[in-house]
Design a protein around this nucleic acid. Sequence first.
DNA 1: CTAGGGTTAG
Length: 768
Amino acid sequence: MASLPSVALSPTLKLETEVKKHPSASSSIEKESQSRSISYQKSSVSTQLDERPEPARPLDFDDPLSLTKEGTEIECAYYVSLLKECIKRKCVSGAQIVHAHIVKTGTQKEFFLMTFLVNVYAKCGAMTSARKVFDNLPKGSVVAWTSLLKGYVQNSESEVAVEVFVEMMESGSFPSYYTLGIALNACSSLSSIELGKQFHAFIVKYRIDQELSIGNALCSLYSKFGILKSAVKAFRRVRDKDVISWTAVISACVENGAAAMGLRFFIEMLNEDVKPNEVTLTTVLSLCCLIMSLGLGKQVHSLSIKLSYGSNRRLTNSIMYLYLKCRCIKEAEYLFSTMETVNLVTWNALIAGYSQAMELAKDDVSAHRSGNEALGMYFKLNRSGMKPDLFTLSSILTICGGLVALEQGEQIHAQTIKSGFLSDVVVGTALVNMYNKCGSIEKASKTFVEMSTRTLISWTTMITSFARHGHSQQALQLFEDMRLAGLRPNQITFVGVLAACSQAGMVNEALEYFQIMKTEYKLKPVMDHYGCLIDMFVRLGRTEEAFDIVKKMDFEPSEFIWNLLIAGCRNHGHTELGFCAAEQLLKLKPRDIETYVMLLNMYISAERWKDVSQVRKLMKEEKVGKLNDWSWISIKEKTRSFKTNDRLHPGNAEIYTFLEELLNKAKSYGYESGENVEVVDEEEEAEEKTFSYCVYHSEKLAVAYGLLHTEKSASIRVVKSIGMCKDCHNFMKIISLLASKEIIVRDSKRLHKFVNGQCSCADFAGIF
DNA sequence: CTAGGGTTAG
């Protein structure tokens, strides 16, 4: 890349002087190239095919000699059909056989055939051969030059493509509109905006920026450089816009996050009576993904059926992905089941979609279902004979992390090694994150250390992992290492850093890093940063300072922030302040059922019945549903789920007996069951009382089951659909000591790793 | 010989 400007700068001048000698060359050569391709098609293919009663046979790839065996004279059209087959199969050896035969029979005098061969080799990825054939041509036509150029761009050798462009200018050939379109593409793959602008200047000079292929290419070029304005300008200048122009400009909007503008272009396009094709609709679907618009997605889906695009795989992949992302699992699964052919991307979209659905569902029952569904699909994919790629692996690792499924995660780790994808940064980072979420900070760190390349995201993942596991010093050390390595932290990195400080109660450091973030890195604090600071003060019982932070924020505190504050107030007995905060929170009309439950508990224990009924009313209005407390534990790839007070479940009797034993033992270690007496809410039915403290919460059952069914040294990993209560948290701490067992519980709020009577969350204030 | 599209990590 460093050498590129020198390649580019001087030839540009040269290129301009050359051009001035042939000011009219553009159109004439353009015409020449077009007429050539027309005559080649007409005289060689169509007519000769008419004379042949049998359609051209494809090359027998199992018997490559069949071609020579034929022995008789072979027409150009036959060669062309064979070579087309080679392109389809990306078969270099096939092309070589045909090539040899052409030479043998002397057909290489046919100029167009040899030009086509350049294209064939280029499309098969054999650039050396393409270049050789090109060099043997008596004089390179624009078409041959263009094929060569395209080949280099396609085979990610855009530097060479630019050199070839210069060479072409020097040889006196003038680029066609096609050639310039490809050259612009080379600029985007080289991420060289300077070079792109030079080409643009050249294009403007000859007033050809309104040409279709050039304007379209300019539009996507500027889009890739993030200059949406210029992309739109380029689009507007195109004289006879076609469907590709419209698609390009919509795509530019999507790429740059301007969904509303993209949608306006789509509507404008329909108003102009331009019929969208499969590509357009796929682009509009990614627009839907961007803004999570299921409604628009469904309209596009029906439009695609109306236009009979139903069998387009890429389009269907997109629709399926959108449905999953919007948590319309049934629709997506139905679509998948009806697809005629699926490819790896289909599987990847499916798994990635489940992972999105899981993310969105937070930790409720459907999230767990999506995760398991994805795992099932992953194994199905493996059985189908297709090989997972880096997309598959990184998505499925995210799923494993979400499910706290360490065994499966490790199995997939082995697969990444075998398949050679371990060296990929994204896969490596996904692995680090998977181990982090499964509670294995040691393996996370080991994986991180062994990575051959790391991006900012990799560093951030590791920093956050340390912080979440309560290893604040390591997190901060790593942050300094990262800065030394010359990487510029972003907002998310600082969330990790502040979380580390918060966890360790390092007030001064936290405030210092907060300043560094704002002044040195010019990063605007977001809600999560304030959340860390507030959490820190609240943990330390410095509630008023926590409220001071809220006052300093330049936006309205979120549900999450109020939750932290209220939990802090309750933990430290600042009841009145807590009620004030609760009032503010209610004004927000919270979304999260757990928030309501916390408020209810708060008001019920204070016997403020008026407030209780007010909260209940709001819950009905907001349709928040009921609290669904589930816990899952997976042992040796089998998952068991538990519901609070689930005595009816067959096989639970043994677990209850064992849990009683555990509770009794724990009591002798200072555990006070019922320390928080179950709150009685007089207005509600008996079964709705489960939201308060309960001896038989689902995670206790799951852990009891885990202790009964895992080997002594193995850790226990539980996922819980809602936040843990304080009682269970205490219980887990004691059990981890009693049974000398590592117990990991990932609840809806965070990860708890209990070892030797301590929890990695350092008794996170958010527990209610 | 051309321009536009689907799936990965914090």
